[in-house]
């Protein structure tokens, strides 16, 4: 019984955290699924977003304005990776790693040379805070997060339906076709990377407020959590959700499920230190499954009739 009551107690926190990471995972979805690029910049840009937001709020800024600046900082991080990849010929993964590494130093500078800066909800009018996650009033972060995420999904649904958005999708789907149709695939890859990292940094700004601090290491392994959310969402909803907006929603639900499962295994007595290993193993497994499936069905198809 004790197990269930403590799990029930932990559920709202897990849900809220899952939503914040769901926003981040939407950013990962844009690069990983739409652009077909694995962008590791996000480990750095999520911390950049958190750091920018915390420092500006501490300086007395309105938290929404601070979050807008965090978003802009993420756009710049994506731009740097995009330039390294598109204009310097560096493979996308390596370009992301380089930016991520550079961002570690930059994030330390933003945080005033400290590894950690606190942002107490007592002193500042924060948008979301962990403290109220079990309250039943408007200070509870969950309703706000739900509204915000729906707004982001709607905005992205609109954007990826426009001519520009379609060009990004074509770039990710087939570069040869995109170029043959006059699409500057380099520019649109950069645009996609910017948008993705902007969203990730925005999630970082939410996360820093939610947990009441920004930490230079808060993004470590973020890409894996983002990928886990994307994959869980796909595995569970691929058969039901066919629309782009619903795909994004599936990603957010994937992140929430990820955090709830995490809570359960923690309650079951898993050592916190082993969490990252567990996450990595889960993501590796789910990335491998489609590959194995394709090998099996490919071997089966070889004997069959060819499509006309």
């Amino acid at each position: 019984m004790n197990f269930f009551t403590s799990l029930l107690n932990a559920l709202p926190g897990a849900a809220a955290q899952g939503m914040v990471w769901g926003l981040m995972a939407i950013g990962v979805y844009i690069t990983f699924r739409v652009l077909d690029v694995a962008d590791l910049t996000v480990d750095g840009s999520i911390a950049t977003g958190g750091a920018v937001c915390v420092m500006l709020v501490r300086m007395g800024w309105n938290p929404w304005a601070a979050m807008l600046c965090a978003f802009a900082a993420g756009l710049v991080a994506g731009l740097v990776t995009g330039i390294l990849h598109g204009h310097c010929g560096i493979p996308a993964i390596l370009a992301g790693i380089l930016t991520q590494l550079a961002l570690y130093s930059i994030n330390l500078r933003i945080l005033g040379g400290k590894a950690n800066q606190a942002l107490s909800v007592d002193k500042y009018p924060l948008v979301v805070s962990q403290r109220y996650v079990r309250d039943t009033n408007l200070q509870n972060p969950i309703p706000l997060l739900i509204v915000f995420i729906i707004a982001v999904i709607m905005a992205l649904y609109w954007f990826f339906g426009t001519e520009k958005g379609c060009a990004i999708r074509a770039t990710g789907a087939n570069v040869h076709m995109a170029r043959a149709q006059g699409i500057n695939t380099r520019s649109y890859t950069i645009l996609g990377l910017m948008l993705s990292n902007g969203l990730v940094a925005l999630a970082g700004a939410f996360l820093a407020q939610y947990q009441g601090s920004a930490d230079v290491g808060m993004g470590r392994g973020a890409i894996v959590i983002g990928l886990a959310a994307v994959i869980i969402g796909e595995v569970l909803f691929a058969k039901v959700f066919h629309n782009f907006a619903l795909h994004l929603l599936a990603v957010v639900i994937g992140a929430i499920i990820y955090y709830i499962v995490l809570q359960i295994v923690l309650q079951l007595g898993l050592n916190t230190n082993d969490l990252k290993m567990l996450s990595a193993a889960i993501v590796a497994l789910f990335l491998a499954i489609p590959y194995w499936q394709s090998k099996v069905s490919g071997a089966r198809r070889k004997g069959g009739a060819k499509h006309a």
């Binding site: 426009t162 001519e163 520009k164 379609c166 060009a167 789907a173 076709m177 149709q181 699409i183």
Partner: peptide, 22 residues
């Protein structure tokens, strides 16, 4: 583009050489 619809592929082609806006 395999992941895009037939009509979306045609719409991309219809905009070849034009400015792609919002």
């Amino acid at each position: 583009a395999p992941g895009m619809l037939i009509e979306e592929n045609l719409a991309l082609a219809a905009r070849r050489g034009t400015h792609r806006g919002l």
